[in-house]
Design a protein around this nucleic acid. Structure first.
Lengths: 204, 204
DNA sequence: CGCATATTTAATCATTTGATTAAAACCTTT
DNA sequence: AAAGGTTTTAATCAAATGATTAAATATGCG
């Protein structure tokens, strides 16, 4: 029943291939719309291997999900708690890192957001974002801008950075922006969002 | 085979009940995760009625989807093409209308965005957003702020307005904001976003 | 090699799920 | 109330889908 031992480098590679395929398909179509056969096909392997290496669709999903989430949050987390950067430096770093990450993984936001919506409880139990409120970043905002709830600032920052990627399918399908133009405009945003965030804070 | 005639007020009401239930469940769980039995249960009716009134799950979904989309776009559309409002007035109107709409329908954005991602082509064929680029709103932006792609402004506006609702499940599940606090902060944003948008434009 | 263990495959299962059907219940009209 | 239509129900179907199994193949080791 148990297969604790791993074996050749081949086998590990098979496992990795399945995980990579699962990651791609889950991210593209979401949990519910993904069939295990899709994953097997994408990986170019027999369906049964999926259950051999990862017990079930759900377990495989969980693994992929945690990896994606970790990736998504760690990008921002490093900058938020850095005590030697000014608020503006932190902002620039977050913007730059995020736009880079999302340019490589444009499906990531919708995927995470819709899966969290489908199962909010298990997300909360796994990722405690409360520490965000305690971060140095939030402290700086609180200190410099007494009136505003720090999450307002956070929502602005994420909205400006993430939302374009959420809209990407809409923009490209309606021909409002080609893939190339989108990339170019995101490069522009990298420079502009920090300035905009500064301007926003100055209004308060 | 055909049932062209409609009948009593009762029957219409049944049809409407099914559509309402479908709307609720589809919006909450997305197309793929929704089972026709979920809808029947939510409507408190026999499963077969669903196929009696609307041929198939897909057809029912399509109807719901078009209604949601129309709702979502018409809110913004009215303001965008109004020739007698200044850019700032248009912005305020869009912000206010959207925050009101989304407060009543917080699931709407994720639902639309993830379904569009699943089937971008049919979305594009049904909604031609190209006219957005021709709207009076866009013209004003182009005139007043030559350097910036008007879609940048649009992304900012929608990002600031819509993104908080997309994050809502995350914020509430992680206890960063209670439902009540969220509502309060959205009320704050109604006032602030127009100011922020103005400040953003001033930086260019 | 020859054995043991790990990996892979093809076939099959059980459940879920969208859809259909035939009969029952309900209305409306005469 | 009987006829003729519409609406609703319970039962059932066929296909899809996640999972398992038993046999086949490959791999490592003495």
């Amino acid at each position: 029943m148990a297969k604790k031992k791993k074996a050749t480098t081949e086998s590990l590679s098979t496992e990795e291939k399945i995980k990579a395929a699962a990651s791609a398909v889950f991210t593209r179509k979401g949990y519910a719309a993904t069939r295990t056969r899709d994953i097997a096909e994408e990986a170019g392997m027999n369906l049964a291997l999926l259950n051999y290496y990862f017990r079930s669709k759900e377990k495989l999903f969980e693994i992929v999900m945690v990896e994606k989430m970790t990736k998504f949050f760690s990008v921002v987390w490093g900058a938020l708690e850095n005590k030697s950067m000014t608020l503006e430096e932190k902002t620039s770093t977050v913007v730059e890192n995020y736009i880079d990450l999302l340019s490589e993984n444009p499906d990531l936001p919708i995927f995470i957001l819709s899966e969290v919506r489908m199962n909010p409880a298990q997300f909360a139990s796994r990722f405690s974002l409360a520490k965000v409120l305690e971060s140095d970043f939030m402290k700086q905002i609180r200190k410099q801008h007494k009136g505003l709830h720090p999450l307002q600032f956070m929502m602005n920052l994420l909205g400006l950075v993430v939302f374009p990627f959420v809209m990407k399918p809409v923009l490209e399908q309606t021909k409002l922006l080609s893939e190339k133009d989108f990339k170019a405009q995101m490069a522009v945003r990298k420079k502009l969002i920090p300035k905009w965030m500064k301007a926003i804070l100055a209004t308060i």
